[in-house]
Design a protein around this nucleic acid. Structure first.
Lengths: 192, 192
DNA sequence: CGCTGAGGCTACGAGGCATAGCTTTCTGGC
DNA sequence: GCCAGAAAGCTATGCCTCGTAGCCTCAGCG
């Protein structure tokens, strides 16, 4: 029996492939073992179990999202940055709906996800930093943004918007709704 | 062996009790059987299986929400009705977080949920009817409302808002955000 | 008083996670 | 170049889940 040469990383890779192609519910140790060409108990040499694997997957997803959002927001500020971030958020979820479903909504509660979750939170705070909000108001603004983006994206990812009316239009309105809830800066040069 | 006297309704009742007290993941046939004082296979006399039970639970939850929302919105119109509906939405989710999680986001796709799901959709459309929106714009407005209410509520229900800053304040802002995205009526008597 | 069917039951099989303990393979030091 | 030990596989096993098959018993009705 030659070694399969697994690592924790390759196991998580396989898990993501299964999630992408067959959905989150299809993520079982048996499926991962089959895909990696190994017997199921062998996976325990690389992961702590199914619950641990789910956390590892979630961490990857959060990191991936943070990276994409950072790239989208970089070089932009205020409304422009918020809109770009929200579009990228939806873009990720549309591209990888099942991965998004694998991300818990409370990453900061899991020690294994706290670090990467904090990175994402800090990104949101940085994007909203351009509005000069107080600490509390920045938190309220992050919450509004999260609620809207997560709500729309999760409903869309699970096929919850049934009717055949353009979702892009709705999402533009949703972005406008969030932007309008943020303060206008009196001294902003391009907003006379 | 005296009969336990189960019906489909009492089985669903037991399922809801389990969901409320132990969470959605604890809903197993074994748990329902234990609670109803019966062997697990006996449940198949009343339900079609676990998947069927989940649909029955979802139908109950949707109906319950629709009833509560109807009661909250009745006698109100426009911004007042929208705000009341959204508060009641959050109220339900805070009161029964695990039940809310049992509701699929795409009820219209399941034949067993289509009827009751349509009732809920029609309620939302009726509440927004007071704004005189075109058909398409009414759909966009329902989507905005759903995205915001579902997003906030689901994050809150799963403990996703970590920081100890008043959530009521955030939710008031969120309601204002939605209300502001709806058209103002020039002829509205109380909005000079 | 007996028949019938609904509503219970036990027994069992498939598939899931997880642990125990054995065997093989690779690697690093001599 | 070889050997020891750790790392990475394996099989076997146990328990829990859903679901099906087939039997039994009680209740109600003619």
């Amino acid at each position: 029996m030659p070694r399969a040469g697994l690592t924790t990383e390759t196991v998580v890779d396989a898990a993501l492939e299964i999630i992408d192609s067959e959905g989150l519910a299809a993520l079982t140790l048996a499926a991962v073992a089959a895909r990696t060409g190994v017997a199921a108990p062998s996976l325990y040499k690389h992961i702590g179990g199914l619950a641990d694997l789910r956390l590892l997957v979630a961490a990857r997803v959060i990191a991936e999202m943070t990276d994409r959002f950072t790239a989208a927001a970089i070089g932009r500020s205020q409304d422009d940055a918020v809109a770009a971030l929200m579009r990228e958020y939806r873009g990720y979820v549309v591209a990888h709906p099942a991965r998004y479903a694998a991300m818990p909504v409370d990453p900061l509660h899991h020690p294994a996800l706290a670090a990467t979750g904090t990175r994402l939170l800090n990104l949101l705070l940085a994007v909203l930093g351009g509005y000069g909000l107080s600490d509390d108001n920045a938190i309220h603004a992050v919450r509004r943004l999260r609620a809207v983006a997560h709500g729309f994206a999760s409903i869309e990812a699970e096929g919850g918007f049934g009717l055949q009316i353009d979702l892009d239009v709705t999402y533009d309105q949703v972005i406008q709704m969030v932007v309008a809830s943020l303060p206008r800066r009196a001294d902003s040069p391009d907003r006379p």
